[in-house]
Design a binder for these strands. Sequence first.
DNA 1: ATCCTGACTCAAA
DNA 2: TTTTGAGCCAGGA
Length: 114
Amino acid sequence: MTSVTPMERIWFIVNLIPHGSVLPYGIVADLAGLPGRARYVSRALKLAPDSLALPWHRVINSQGKISFAKDTEPYRQQQELLRLEGITVNAGKISLSQYQWKPDLATLVMTLPF
DNA sequence: ATCCTGACTCAAA
DNA sequence: TTTTGAGCCAGGA
């Protein structure tokens, strides 16, 4: 009996976000089957082992903004990683209508380990 | 159990 | 459009 923990579900979803795309915390939670737990997503990313090499920078908040204070190193790092994928931060925001990943749900569900 | 914290969200102002 | 405030929900002290 293999059990997939809530945190592992989140890591799984984040790992699926394509290069050049982003996804809000709340949507990641929804796709992971954990509606209403956006804050849990941020915690899961913080605790994720580096060995997983998750594309954590592709997760932003629902307002299209990076959720780190803009005068911090993590903020600058995330902004740079996104820039390398062709995603620009204008006036502190990222265009969700332009970059948000919209997976084919029917296909996605079949790939889920949960 | 109680209180505080946070890589969140939504609605109201 | 930006800022607040209340709501939210695990974790940790």
